[in-house]
Design a protein around this nucleic acid. Structure first.
Lengths: 160, 160
DNA sequence: CGAAAACGTTAGTGAAACTAACGTTGCTTG
DNA sequence: CAAGCAACGTTAGTTTCACTAACGTTTTCG
């Protein structure tokens, strides 16, 4: 009622999302992340993988074997969910799960040769997907964007 | 095995997440968005609101009354979920839902005076929350960041 | 007139983040 | 050394969210 409707402007109110919504950083983030997640999930599915696979494999290659709880802490996956991820990874022979002789509570998870090869494949796939995700940005801008993301995330994990 | 362990560097492999993971734009986005969503959800909960409420109210103030399907298209909320959101909003008397005399399939949703006041409150709350979210960035950087987000999102919605 | 589409609504799916509790094993400390 | 607490792997369950399917009703279009 307050807001006047100019008769000469075509009424696209049925389609257009309000500017306030389009500008909110928080909303932009969720929307973009939704797209990004779908992109990644679908891309990885094409090679029979899921993003948690990558997290675990990368952590194994980078820091060596570890217990499930360790992997959980490194990758941010809850240890209750880690069970399923490791079942999938052992099922694909990308990883080996063996009891720790020194501490019988633990399982020691080791990446296999095949797992290492798979990880490098996933690295390629993800490089391409990230490329697609950041397509509209120039290399310099991508760098900047990623650095900002790191700063923001670091800030909000420190102040948890 | 390939990767050497320098003996003088303390082994923080239990805590640290692999660098590969920390640099991936897609992962950074999901992680940050998770924080952001929590921030927003909790912040809005303090005033008994949810983010969908804001989307609907903003769309109503910006483009005037509309049918549920219209609101759905404007705000990106599925029309199946819109029902519940509007129930909550009418319950709080922020919005009125009346049958359209000209088309008996439709309901016409109108924002109330109280709804308008509530919207402006939410605007303030969200301004503060976005501020908190982007705290580590300078004003210029925030601007840049938001613009990049817009470009990225636009690109991925055009190419749907 | 008859078919197709749009409307509001209900129900339900699938994935993800997260919590709780369990029995087992190890560590600490009185 | 015994007792109590902590860490481990595992199972089960909750909640939330984006999304789909189907329905009866009403309108539009060929």
């Amino acid at each position: 009622m307050i807001r006047a409707e100019a008769a000469d402007i075509p009424d696209d109110s049925a389609l257009r999302t309000p500017d306030r919504l389009r500008r909110r950083a928080s909303r932009l983030l969720s929307q973009l992340t939704m797209r990004s997640d779908r992109l990644i999930t679908e891309g990885l599915a094409r090679t029979d993988a899921r993003k948690w696979h990558y997290a675990v494999l990368a952590s194994l290659e980078e820091y060596g074997p570890g217990s499930q709880a360790e992997l959980s802490r490194r990758s941010g996956i809850y240890r209750s969910d880690m069970v399923g991820v490791l079942n999938e990874l052992t099922g694909r022979h990308l990883v080996e799960r063996a009891p720790d002789p020194g501490d019988r509570r633990r399982n020691i998870i080791t990446i296999s040769a095949r797992g290492r090869r798979h990880l490098h494949l996933l690295d390629k796939v993800l490089d391409e997907l990230d490329d697609e995700l950041l397509a509209p940005l120039s290399p310099a801008e991508r760098d900047q964007f990623v650095r900002m993301l790191v700063r923001l995330l670091d800030h909000h994990t420190r102040t948890s």
